[in-house]
Amino acid sequence: MASDSAPLSAPAPVTVRVQAEDFDTAAEIESLSAGRTDIGAVVTFSGLCREEKGVLSALELEHYPGMAEAEIRRICEEAITRFDLQGATAIHRFGRIDPGARIVLVIAASTHRQAAFDGASFIMDYLKTAAPFWKKEHLKDGTARGWVSAQDADDTARERWARG
């Protein structure tokens, strides 16, 4: 039953935070993998705020407190089961985010690289369409362009994980 890479059947740790503050990507990777000898691959995804060709002054991220954390945790736990991950971390910010700043971080750890790549991708695809966050754009001319529309491409990205 025990594989060469997972001598202990300890549950894979899931860290989820929804916060206004910035985060330290390197510190989060270290936190997930420090002291572990069963992890062979760590994949991270960082989502940053684009300036949209110079017109955007900031994004405003609204979220549903409580449900946002719960949904992200559910998605991470599903990824751990599905891809046999050794651990996952997801951090999503809310409030005002300036161009160039970090919005979201996903880290997936596994024994071999493909599961970590797939796990990080799976978490992001579900997070974008199921975690209750909404982006509003504020423009440099002082106006609010309004709420970002959901993209069909995001639904398509999620659907590729559907099991037939």
């Binding site: 989502g47 991220l61 549903y64 946002a68 997070l127 369409t129 209750p132 966050f133 709420w147 970002v148």
Partner: peptide
């Protein structure tokens, strides 16, 4: 729609829901 912080379809009975949320499609990430 979310009932007590869980996504539901429109045909879902409200049951003994304490908190019901209505919102647009999500755009986080």
């Amino acid at each position: 729609v979310a009932i007590d912080q869980e996504h539901v379809e429109h045909d879902e009975p409200l049951g003994a829901a304490r908190e019901i949320a209505l919102f647009p499609p999500m755009t986080g990430g």
